[in-house]
Write a protein that binds this DNA or RNA. Structure first.
Lengths: 158, 158
DNA sequence: GTCGCTGCAAAGTCTTTGCAGAGAG
DNA sequence: CTCTCTGCAAAGACTTTGCAGCGAC
């Protein structure tokens, strides 16, 4: 494992870093740091899911009912974050676009088509092969996503 | 005896097979085999691209101007084909869903985030690892999809 | 104070649906 | 003949945009 951080408090430290990077990014582009933008970043960070704009908006309304954050702001902020490569959007086949923070450790997904459960995994061998393939095809790799669809152990029992 | 095909004339044979499978599928579900459905399947088969519903509709209108195929029929047929696992859809970047025939040999995708071009590849090693991972996690693998995002060679030149 | 930002609602896009006539089985 | 399909247009769903007031700097 090449993870040299302590697990303890890792999450908070990473968030502070992320937040300050974000502030700097805003400053560089003459953009303003607003509560809404912070809440959106924070909510993305605290979610282990890949969120649709709508789901994200809903989460924010639940946690911050005082802030009447509009869906339009969520869209606008997500577009901003995506342009800045802070988040990436992916699709899980079915429908719609889902967003996740790009800063988190990379992982792939096993998706149960019965119960919808998502299990994450990382495989070094696959990561290596992906880089090798991208190199061969002279492709400058930025990110990747992989999903394995099937039936999880629990659902097989049924 | 599965997958014992010759390479010779494989493409045509495969299309005939695909077509007859499709007819059987329709029959099983009390659905009708119409010109529109055939043309859509054929166009998908003959395209090396991943097509958006709109692009597919456009192609069909060009090749079969006599048949005034409506966009609604394209959507309806694509939904049918996707439900039946004849085609799979892929979403990427900015906006839109693209479809491709699932019956072709399995492959993964390199997606250029600049120009949207999709390049296909197959890697045995990755396929093997995926099966190994699914086995380890007692996951009954049905399908998978993998996308590598980045910048293609042409776009890097700019 | 100056601009950029926000919420709202209206306007766009893309996709789906209702319907009456056309066509496959 | 029956019942599904189709094209058309209208309706929906999801995103983006215009605007006037608000708020970060």
């Amino acid at each position: 494992m090449e993870n040299v951080h302590t697990d303890f408090n890792d999450r908070t430290i990473a968030y502070k870093q992320l937040l300050s990077d974000f502030k700097e990014l805003l400053k560089k582009n003459n953009l303003k740091f607003t509560i809404q933008r912070e809440v959106i970043l924070e909510t993305l960070y605290n979610s282990d899911e890949h969120l649709t704009p709508e789901a994200l908006h809903h989460l924010i309304q639940e946690k911050h009912p005082d802030l009447k954050t509009g869906i339009a702001t969520v869209y606008r902020t997500l577009a901003l974050l995506e342009d800045s490569n802070v988040v990436t959007s992916l699709s899980f086949g079915a429908q719609g676009k889902k967003y996740e923070l790009g800063a988190k450790e990379h992982h792939d997904h096993l998706i149960c088509t019965e119960c919808g459960k998502i299990t994450e995994f990382v495989d070094e061998e696959i990561e290596k092969r992906q880089h090798a393939i991208a190199d061969t095809l002279k492709f400058q790799m930025k990110d990747h996503s992989m999903q394995i669809y099937g039936v999880c152990y629990e659902c097989q029992q049924k």
